[in-house]
């Protein structure tokens, strides 16, 4: 582990624009992160005071209006991004305004969410920012408020959504079945087909984030494993979320890659391709003398 002070710079292209910034602020600004030697862990709590000393970048969001279903209405306009790295992993702290907490899994209800996207390979010729391309993939880490609620302790029964609900009977809870036995658990699995097929979407969850691979619109697929971690909390006017993932391979101090962000406002029925997003923004990992 390097003991030097490493600075991760997140900057945004002029094309993305910076609404909300005053004229006196530079269009491209560094985010300086002072990383303690190996003994220091990256803060995983979005309310950790250490984030206060990290410069935030206001990343302008635009509607995803390239592929159906398109987002044709502007909702969340900006996400404020801070980033820290310990030389091995990188922690992004995203904060955005959202008047409503949307984290309940219900029909016609959608969860607040955010995502961080990086090219799978560092190259000057970046993949399309819209989920990558067939031969140039992107790596995405997705955080969902509904997953956070589950990780924070909410169960996944109907009573956790509707406390007064009274289901008649579940076959896998028949008195003749020993609770927790292999037979009982296998039977319960059969009545949750997505879980039976190991769809990572279907829980149960240990992390509120999922690592994904994209090869273009509609191709999103789970990574072999999710090594990223995350934690989100409600703040005064919205969400603050820390997503920690491994540094992109080959991103050494002083080198650049690209990064993009997306925000879903569940209360506006944003899900999947219906989202607010940024274009690619340069991401610089810098060593300070």
């Amino acid at each position: 582990m390097k003991s030097s002070r490493i600075v991760l710079v997140v900057s945004l292209t002029a094309a993305v624009g910076l609404p909300g910034c005053s004229q006196s602020q530079p269009i491209v600004a560094p985010v300086e992160v002072v990383v303690q030697p190996s003994t220091v862990e990256l803060p995983d709590d979005p309310l950790d005071a250490r984030w206060d000393s990290v410069v935030a970048f206001p990343a302008a969001l635009i509607p995803q209006d390239m592929v159906e279903p398109r987002q044709l209405r502007v909702s969340t306009r900006e996400v404020r991004v801070r980033a820290l790295s310990d030389g091995v992993r990188v922690a992004f702290r995203l904060e955005w305004s959202d008047a409503t907490r949307d984290d309940m899994p219900m029909p016609a209800a959608f969860t607040d969410a955010c995502a961080i996207q990086l090219p799978a390979a560092i190259s000057a010729d970046v993949p399309a920012p819209q989920m990558g391309e067939p031969d140039r993939s992107v790596e995405i880490t997705l955080w969902r408020a509904s997953w956070q609620a589950t990780v924070d302790g909410r169960g996944d029964t109907i009573q956790d959504i509707h406390p007064n609900a009274v289901p008649d009977h579940y076959p896998f809870e028949a008195a003749s079945l020993e609770s927790g036995s292999d037979i009982q658990r296998a039977m319960q699995q059969r009545y949750a087909p997505a879980r039976a097929l190991d769809n990572p979407m279907s829980g149960p969850r240990e992390q509120p984030v999922e690592d994904l691979i994209g090869h273009g619109p509609g191709t999103l697929a789970p990574a072999a494993t999710t090594s990223s971690t995350g934690r989100g909390k409600r703040v005064a006017d919205g969400w603050a979320v820390v997503v920690t993932r491994r540094l992109p391979e080959g991103l050494a101090s002083g080198k650049r890659t690209q990064v993009a962000f997306a925000i879903w406002e569940g209360g506006s029925e944003e899900v999947g391709a219906r989202k607010m997003r940024t274009g690619w923004a340069p991401l610089l990992l810098e060593v300070k003398p």
């Binding site: 029909p107 029964t157 997505a194 829980g203």
Partner: peptide
């Protein structure tokens, strides 16, 4: 088509 809130599919 019905949404299953427990499996998310």
């Amino acid at each position: 088509v019905f949404y299953n809130p427990m499996t998310g599919t």
